[in-house]
């Protein structure tokens, strides 16, 4: 089995950040804040966050914030919960949450909760349990969960449960691993995991592991590195991660590395990107791969960052 090419991945991430002129990076420009979260968290997990000028990042992030309090995916783009979460997470990474006008951000998030407990992603009203996770995770990090109706939020998530014990984006929708992470994560953060049928969901999730060792997101689909995160984190939160073969999964992730130029792809020999590089490294972290810092399965931040926030542990 190959080894983790950590230094190459660090170089790759720093290099992507500079290569703003490629078509790929222009296409991704509207979600640069997500990209920043993926890249910077990867750097932190690999112990290289200090190669980045935090002041520069923080001041850019603040420029992505709107009057409403929400953050857009980049400067000039509309605010949305997806990017608001990334902004809060990156600030947490740098221990810079104090730059935020707390009331402004939390008012924005609170304003997006609907009568039935669900959350809209922005003022245009798309409802999805992904946004429930964004809102709950953000408010928990900011220690303002009391601002929303948690009970209703939980009830809405539970109403999205499916035949396989998983969760869909709205009631009636099919479950897939990404959505399950959001719902299980939100339930974990609100201390509501008793709503999850852990054995049923755990079995469905462990059956995501296919012959190659990789994980898929739904039955009869291809394995993909990003599911290493979605499936693994969910399995960990419900304490069923021992039901998969960790060694085979590690091998699959390592096989998806570009060992020459750095970066990790969705499947072996595909083109790499920051998204899959993050999910590959985060997956290895959940698998306790040596040399990678531990990541928290619910907050999707390094464990030391989460412990700093909630326990004042340094």
């Amino acid at each position: 089995m190959g080894e983790l090419a950590g230094d190459k991945h660090v170089k790759y991430i720093l290099c992507v950040e500079k290569k703003k002129d490629s078509f790929e990076s222009v296409v991704m420009e509207h979600l640069r804040l997500n990209g920043a979260y993926w890249g910077l968290t990867t750097l932190d997990l690999l112990g290289k966050l200090d190669t980045v000028d935090s002041n520069e990042v923080v001041s850019w992030i603040l420029q992505c914030q709107h009057e409403s309090g929400g953050f857009g995916g980049n400067i000039g783009h509309d605010p949305h919960l997806l990017y608001t979460l990334s902004a809060v997470q990156v600030l947490a990474l740098f221990d810079k949450l104090d730059v935020l006008d707390l009331n402004k951000v939390t008012d924005y998030i609170r304003s997006l909760q609907n009568e039935d407990g669900s959350f809209s992603g922005d003022v245009w009203g798309e409802v999805d349990t992904r946004f429930s996770y964004c809102a709950i995770c953000c408010l928990a990090i900011l220690k303002r969960l009391d601002l929303i109706n948690v009970e209703k939020a939980v009830r809405y998530i539970v109403s999205c449960k499916t035949l396989d014990g998983g969760f869909g984006c709205t009631p009636g929708a099919e479950s897939h691993a990404g959505q399950i992470f959001c719902c299980v994560g939100a339930l974990a953060i609100t201390g509501s995991l008793h709503h999850v049928d852990k054995d049923l969901l755990g079995w469905w999730l462990c059956e995501r592991q296919v012959k190659s060792g990789g994980l898929n997101g739904r039955p009869e689909k291809l394995a993909d590195v990003c599911y290493s995160w979605w499936v693994l984190s969910s399995l960990i939160m419900i304490d069923r991660v021992h039901w998969i073969d960790k060694e085979k999964l590690i091998k699959f992730i390592l096989d998806c590395q570009d060992t020459e130029n750095g970066g990790i792809s969705d499947r072996p020999d595909d083109a790499v990107d920051v998204f899959h590089t993050y999910f590959g490294v985060a997956g290895l972290s959940l698998l306790e791969y040596p040399g990678v810092k531990a990541i928290d399965p619910a907050y999707a931040l390094p464990v030391d960052v989460v412990n700093r926030i909630f326990f004042g542990r340094c």
Partner: peptide, 9 residues
């Protein structure tokens, strides 16, 4: 272990 699987239970 660095990952605590019952942290949320």
């Amino acid at each position: 272990h660095s990952i605590d699987t019952t942290r949320y239970l």
